[in-house]
Write a protein that binds this DNA or RNA. Sequence first.
DNA 1: TAGATTGTTAATCGATTAACAATC
DNA 2: TAGATTGTTAATCGATTAACAATC
Lengths: 210, 210
Amino acid sequence: MTFNKELVVRLLRYKNALLKLKNLGVLKVFSDNIADTAGVTASQVRKDFSLLKIAGNKRGGYQIKELLEDITDIVGPTSGESIIVVGCGNIGRALINYKGFHSETFEMIAGFDISPETVSGSLTCPVYGMDKLEEFLLGKNIKVAIISVPDNVAAEVYDKLVKLGVKGFLNFARVNLREIDGVFVNNVNLELSIENLFYYINFMEKGTSI
Amino acid sequence: MTFNKELVVRLLRYKNALLKLKNLGVLKVFSDNIADTAGVTASQVRKDFSLLKIAGNKRGGYQIKELLEDITDIVGPTSGESIIVVGCGNIGRALINYKGFHSETFEMIAGFDISPETVSGSLTCPVYGMDKLEEFLLGKNIKVAIISVPDNVAAEVYDKLVKLGVKGFLNFARVNLREIDGVFVNNVNLELSIENLFYYINFMEKGTSI
DNA sequence: TAGATTGTTAATCGATTAACAATC
DNA sequence: TAGATTGTTAATCGATTAACAATC
């Protein structure tokens, strides 16, 4: 079977949707429930499960517990992982305290900054100097890091982290970090995202037909 | 009218590619050149231009200057726009002060929060109560808003903003805001982005595929 | 059983690519 | 002209959706 990025994204959506339902006390779901919660069609949910050989019960739907286990088996377990954030400016500090980054699957454990003594506010994890990065990472098997340093040093920081064995990056700097072999980069370009919205809106308002 | 997000994204890629070529002193390009620079196929470039009624010269290619004007005409100029952020928690406050949101093309002009008096820190724009939202937006033609409220009220806030005429959204809440006709939503699901990275890393290490 | 939902196949939709006539 | 490139149509590809038989 070919590797389908969109399918992976949907699978994680299902997982999150199921966790939410589970937290509400729901034990059993139908494809329709998952579809609604994840924002796709019921057909697609069943089709995806079919491709992945995930079986439910005809008429009985799916047991959330089993379904979550099946999905977790496929995407691989991600629990007890740790992440760090490099660059503790406005965004970096907000990310440190971001609730979603202190979850079952992964935990934000440290921030790094060029001048940690100036990083203000009460934070949910310690902030160290950039010079402590190597020492900190050694033996810790940190797979994922967030880059929220100024644009002009992002590439340099990226290279350093790759050398130290980090495999996945969430990049907030407005530069395109090139994915190299075995390394994955998700670029979060907030400025571009906003600009794109303006373009979509303008494009639509002009009524340019396609 | 159909609206194709991917097409707009490609259009912006062409624009960037053309600007790069222009800066190199290139005056005339063929669909092949654009394709190479933008990372798509020549067929697609010509097909896109055909759909957008952008004409070149048979055998003569495209004049970069004219082409850039045509594309800019289509996506529309974006300058002097204003945006707001609704929800001034960690993320919201960081976004208010985010330098990229005080640019030539658009400016962050206000934040809104359910309890504005508790929003701390020195911010680069004022923060108002949610009850001031309607009054503030009336007559201001704010096209884009950032949603960074708690997950459980995101949908409600979204509906309200849509009713008040906002057309584009950058959504940081971990809920799927459905795009309705004429409204665009860019979901920034940070948690999912990180989980995705772990999956890709697991995938690579295990060599499994789906 | 009667009713409801899965699982899969077929139909549909849309986007990309290929091909090539038009034409400069 | 001869050659090269556009512009458009047709073919292909893949993903999504619809339909419904299987079945609990």
